[in-house]
Amino acid sequence: MSDAIADAKRALRAELRERRQLLSEPAREAAEAGIHAQLDALVDEHGARSISCFLSTMAEPGTRSFVTDAVGRGVRVLLPVTRVDGLLDWAVATPEGDIAEGMYGLPEPVGELLGPIAVNDVDLLVIPAAAVDRNGMRLGWGRGFFDKTLGSMERCPPVYAVVYDSEVLDDLPSDVHDQPVTGIVTPTRTITLAPTRR
Rank of each mutant, 00 (worst) to 15 (best):
A30V: 13
W90S: 01
V81N: 02
D178H: 04
V92T: 12
G74I: 06
P128K: 02
S152A: 15
H36L: 13
P195Y: 00
A59S: 15
R49Y: 03
H36V: 07
A93S: 05
P173D: 03
A8K: 10
L79V: 03
R83T: 05
G47N: 07
A11V: 11
T196H: 13
E108G: 03
R73C: 09
M1W: 08
G115E: 09
P107I: 09
E18I: 08
L114C: 06
D175G: 14
V185W: 03
D69E: 15
I127H: 00
T68G: 06
P195M: 00
L169M: 15
G86D: 06
T94I: 00
V67E: 01
P116R: 14
G115S: 12
E29K: 15
D89V: 06
Q38I: 02
P116A: 13
L12V: 11
P128V: 02
D123F: 14
A6M: 11
L139F: 07
G72D: 12
D40R: 15
S152W: 03
S166P: 02
T182D: 08
C53L: 08
S65G: 07
R143P: 08
V185K: 10
G140A: 05
P26Y: 12
A11P: 02
D89C: 07
D98V: 09
F66E: 06
P109C: 05
M153A: 05
R13D: 01
A131R: 00
P116L: 07
D171P: 04
E96S: 12
R76P: 07
A59M: 08
H177L: 15
L114W: 00
I184G: 09
D171F: 00
R20Y: 11
E154L: 15
D121C: 13
T68S: 13
P195I: 00
P61Q: 10
L106F: 05
V75G: 04
S50Q: 11
P80W: 00
W141A: 14
L172A: 12
G86Y: 01
G102Q: 04
D121I: 09
E45P: 08
A4N: 08
E32L: 13
G47C: 07
A30T: 10
I35T: 07
D44L: 13
G105A: 07
D69C: 13
R76E: 14
D98S: 10
S56C: 03
D170K: 11
L23E: 06
T188F: 06
A48S: 11
A59L: 14
D178M: 09
A31K: 05
R138Q: 09
A31F: 08
C53Y: 03
G111S: 04
G34P: 04
G105I: 02
G34C: 10
